[in-house]
Write a protein that binds this DNA or RNA. Sequence first.
DNA 1: CTGAAAGCGCTAACAT
DNA 2: ATGTTAGCGCTTTCAG
Lengths: 348, 348
Amino acid sequence: MVTMKDVGREAGVSAMTVSNVLRGNTNVTPETAQRVREAADKLHYRLNTTSLSARSLRVSASRHGRNFSTIGLAIFELDRPYPSQLASLISQAAEKRGYQTVVQETRINADNERSIIERVSNQFCDGLIFSSSRLSAAEIEQLSNHRPTVLLDDDRPQQDIDTILTPSETGAQAAIEYLWSTGKRHIGIIGGLGESLDEHETFDSNDTRHRRLMGCRNAFDTLGVDWMSVPIIATPWNDTDARQAIIQNADIVRSCDALFCMTDTTAFGVIRGLKDIGLSVPDDIAVMGFDGIEMGAIMTPSLTTVAVDIPMVAQKAVDMLIERIDDESDRKRQRIVADFHIAQRESA
Amino acid sequence: MVTMKDVGREAGVSAMTVSNVLRGNTNVTPETAQRVREAADKLHYRLNTTSLSARSLRVSASRHGRNFSTIGLAIFELDRPYPSQLASLISQAAEKRGYQTVVQETRINADNERSIIERVSNQFCDGLIFSSSRLSAAEIEQLSNHRPTVLLDDDRPQQDIDTILTPSETGAQAAIEYLWSTGKRHIGIIGGLGESLDEHETFDSNDTRHRRLMGCRNAFDTLGVDWMSVPIIATPWNDTDARQAIIQNADIVRSCDALFCMTDTTAFGVIRGLKDIGLSVPDDIAVMGFDGIEMGAIMTPSLTTVAVDIPMVAQKAVDMLIERIDDESDRKRQRIVADFHIAQRESA
DNA sequence: CTGAAAGCGCTAACAT
DNA sequence: ATGTTAGCGCTTTCAG
């Protein structure tokens, strides 16, 4: 790395004079300035912004002038539409506020999450946004030295941490009610937990999956449908597995006139699986998703879905985090539930 | 601002001990550690990342200071399948080699790219993978202080930097030849540049778009088709714009029996647009894409495409970068072109 | 007009 | 087990 000292040596002056020349010619002879500039050019000198910010500690602890702030985003997956859209929107919202976002994939693995906090977030982030963490809020607090943190979509009511939730219960409930309102009377659910097939009661409350199932259950209860009679097909939330699940449960599927899928990506695979077993959407069977990813509007058939206001999630996450960074006092933690609407499209 | 010194005073120890406690308990009695942590809690101490960066200048200068093995990935977009799959695969390949990946979105903006290099990559990454940069290799070299760098899909032949290319020319050529082999004689191209509609000759050679167009042209030349007669519809490479482009160019589209789309995402929007204007795929018209994203196999109809070996791109990128990190000598730069195959599916 | 010194918060290396 | 020292690149201060 070329430093001012190097440039100074080349030009036969001190680093201080180099500094003076490069930041406006305060009291330097034109000839000296010229020599310095030539030396800097020759050595490809570039002002080191890092040390500049180190310097700024001394000048004033508060942010002044240019801002070198960074926020970390730990997200469970990068290769599916919902999380990647979220990551992109957060990056852009942060940029508008002068923050650079660094994204890291956790693959929902606690060790990865610890590694991210210790190796990256603690080292150079002013704050951290965590999407679906395996860690407890307490562990995050401790590992991160109480760095400002916002949790996304991780509903553990007892935890004292800023949180933004997707409207899992109300959204799922609205979905079932919507399908019912279009005359469907044999609604199946795709993407429940493996265990929930056998034992619908033993829910672990801190899980998006369970919250969405609870929303469904509430709807069915209200509609007078016996929850135990509702077909629930367990599958991981991705298109490939969802497609297989449909093929392997073709008989159950054929007994339904509508399927509610726990995510849009699941619905995408479901629609494919339905085609594989000879059913067409929406003529033979209606399909509805949850999330509101962009491709839902483009796919064929376009996807009726619980469209979460994803830009709102991103914006609120960034706003809450920056508020927390700027104001170090121990304000009360916030908990926000994102808006949604039923995007009524071709598939249901 | 609360510093380690403050915490130390509170706990009755030196700042050094505070540092030791907070960064892993190397040789500190549990009681001291406890006192320090309590003091830090009480004062709401937070590690100052700015001074850490200042510190890191020293470490990374000598380069032997134990680093946290982090690689940076600067990628043009995070909210589309191809780049997000790539980011995910790179993260996972890096993890297997003991590296943590931090991903940053550039949105193909030179200032963002500079900011990433200066604010993050230079500070905390052992190396950098750049996907489609707006910067010249020389500028990257200079800004990054000659940090190990691998460029993805950025073909500027004159540039001296490790590069992995997608097989744009050969892939596009193979696509056209495939469509021809299935009997299609009126093949249109979707996703060319705006300018290329008017003036097919004035290509700027360093652009994936142009390389794919060149591949098409080669194929048509070989097949004896006049390149100037080939319909090319310009549109940005995303589904929404592609859909609109089809609707707005319905007449041109109707004169074709096959469409080659410059990316899979473009093809996704094209298929939707074709439905909008009453054409069905593949019965009325064949559609082919380029990239090989996973959802191509799931969508309806499934997408025939130039399937680039994306896992190979990710693996090679990580391997090349780590090789470069481990071996600081100025070995000759490498240039690798990824494999591909024609994934023959329903759409063509 | 120019430069030496001091110091921003932190930690590797060394000392006690 | 804990503390001391030095120094990362830069700029404010103040002496030459």
